[in-house]
Design a protein around this nucleic acid. Structure first.
Lengths: 169, 169
DNA sequence: CTATTTGCAAAAAGTTTGCGTACAG
DNA sequence: CTGTACGCAAACTTTTTGCAAATAG
């Protein structure tokens, strides 16, 4: 997807909603849509520090929420950490590492479409779906086993280390 | 799944790992496995207040992590809130309401199994998967539209209300 | 008895809110 | 110019940590 084009589309969406296209919004949007690893809000904050002079963490949180409301970002989640953001608005699936919490788009052979099931009996209207493939990423698999087990912060057998890190891309 | 049986299985797992079966662990496990709505840690805390005399929130958090490590609970997530817990360890799918963040097991007609794709090229080993069906639950659909829009905490057009509630079962 | 767990208090993350000033249109 | 967004500070929520007292096996 051409970058320039995406940016123009973004501005159009803002205009349509009557929202100013601020530097912060533009840069934050560009940052998230330039990545495939679904950064957390804090990650985005770090990432845009250099590109937006004295940006504040609060602004990043706020802008991310606005972008979600505008429909140009989606919130996604992995089972161990905070909310993450995804700029790819077309239906797609995710790989999530249960050890380091890395989250990435699935990019293999296409998965046959799933027929959206009828959920009247459950009083629910499905609009969309996404498959979450859980497993272990290479970085974690290569890591010696005892280190790996530490990773997720095992609560069994005492002595928990610090833990809580995101897999680097 | 007979309740008594499940409890025995739980004790067996604890014994196998050499962990004492404390009141807290047993009750918290029973509580979570008795629900289909994937409570958050806080929700569990509230729920077990009456059944474990002066239980502390910390203990609940800690016990939940132990139960995950023991493999009798799984962490699941919805895109808007904190970690939730799921006692159903067999493969299954979820419905998640994008408005109120309600999360429930999909219980309709069986979805044909997905062939686990090859992800060597992405340096990832898949062990499991789950489909997340996103949409809107009946409670939210029935709610008047303007209230609904408030719900998710729209950042557009100012005036956010308090927000952050889980759909009641 | 001995190891493990619990409860407490406190702190670290993660996220939201209200208000005066600065900026986009 | 006018309205909205930004940055700041501070509140709030969610989750983790360290240690003495209580408990399971």
């Amino acid at each position: 997807v051409p970058n320039q084009e995406r940016l123009e589309a973004f501005k159009a969406v803002c205009r349509r909603h009557g929202l100013p296209v601020t530097v912060q919004r533009r840069v934050i949007y560009e940052f998230v849509s330039g990545r495939h690893d679904h950064p957390t809000a804090d990650r985005v904050y770090e990432g845009v520090q250099g590109r937006i002079p004295g940006v504040s963490r609060m602004t990043v949180y706020r802008v991310l929420n606005v972008l979600v409301d505008l429909g140009v970002l989606k919130k996604v989640c992995s089972p161990n950490s905070s909310v993450r953001f995804d700029a790819s608005m077309k239906r797609h699936d995710h790989l999530v590492c249960l050890h380091c919490d890395k989250l990435m788009d699935y990019e293999g052979q296409a998965i046959p479409d799933i027929k959206i099931p009828d959920t009247k009996s459950q009083a629910f209207e499905i609009t969309d779906y996404s498959i979450q493939f859980r497993g272990i990423c290479d970085a974690c698999r290569k890591r010696p086993k005892h280190l790996r087990d530490d990773k997720r912060g095992s609560s069994i057998g005492g002595k928990r280390r610090k833990g809580r890190q995101q897999g680097a891309s």
